[in-house]
């Protein structure tokens, strides 16, 4: 489904991604693990076209999306849930969701489906996004991305700073989306949370691939984690 092949990217003159390759199949959760500064968030930005590629290619179902102008990338069906949520703070819950719906001209039934996953947002519907609690903001960031009926979801540390009940809710939604056939790329710091949902785990360091393994291998052999992350 989502294919990242040999991408190089840089902030100014500092190269961050070096020949990085990843692939996520439909109905699969691939988790990206690496130390701080390994380039996980940058990988997501590069997929979204927010950071220009020096070389390499990102494609979705064989169609190149790295040639598209950045604003056309989400229209191909990629929902982005960025680190720190990045909501449109002064807009209401309804308006944040409407921006998600506009991406692919999704109809009312999509919105209803998303609100069914997050009933709390319906209660907060006319409230400004900045007045929501941290957990509610994460729900909204997730819901906004789901409003474009994504085929691929990019989640960057979705459970950062959340209480356990909220983490569980987000986890359930991720699993629901996987079961609906969405390809999911997940960046997460908490290894235990990763191992409980991921199908495969890709390690990266200094913007390069290390090995990519089935998550089951890591559950059996925690030594691998130790080797790559030093935890």
């Amino acid at each position: 489904m989502l294919e990242v092949s040999g991408i190089n990217a840089a902030y100014g003159r500092a190269q961050v991604l070096r020949d990085l390759s990843l692939s996520v199949a439909a109905g699969e959760i691939l988790c990206l693990l690496g130390r701080n500064g390994a380039g996980k968030t940058t990988t997501m930005k590069a997929i979204m076209g927010l950071l220009p590629l020096l070389s390499g290619r990102v494609s979705l179902d064989g169609q190149s999306i790295s040639d598209l102008p950045p604003h056309r990338v989400p229209g191909a069906g990629i929902g982005y849930i960025p680190q720190g949520r990045r909501l449109f703070a002064e807009l209401t819950v309804a308006q944040n969701l409407e921006i998600g719906l506009m991406v692919r001209n999704s109809g009312r039934e999509v919105l209803e489906g998303v609100l069914a996953l997050f009933p709390r947002l319906r209660e907060r519907y006319r409230q400004r996004a900045e007045t929501l609690s941290g957990g509610e903001q994460q729900m909204l960031a997730t819901a906004r991305a789901l409003c474009l009926e994504p085929r691929v979801l990019l989640l960057d540390e979705p459970t950062e700073g959340l209480q356990p009940s909220m983490i569980e809710l987000i986890r359930q939604v991720i699993v629901v989306m996987r079961d609906r056939g969405v390809a999911i790329l997940l960046v997460e710091q908490r290894v235990d949370a990763v191992l409980s949902v991921a199908d495969r785990v890709a390690f990266m360091e200094n913007g390069r691939n290390l090995e990519t393994l089935p998550a089951a291998r890591l559950r059996d052999d925690p030594e691998i984690l130790h080797r790559h992350l030093g935890v």
Binding site: G49, L50, P70, H71, M102, V103
Partner: peptide, 21 residues
């Protein structure tokens, strides 16, 4: 107007949600 305000609040996220900034 909504599109303009979204662009004002967060340019990158506007791009990531299909707004032709």
């Amino acid at each position: 107007g909504l599109i303009m305000r979204a662009t004002q609040l967060d340019r990158d996220m506007a791009l990531a949600f299909g707004i032709p900034v």
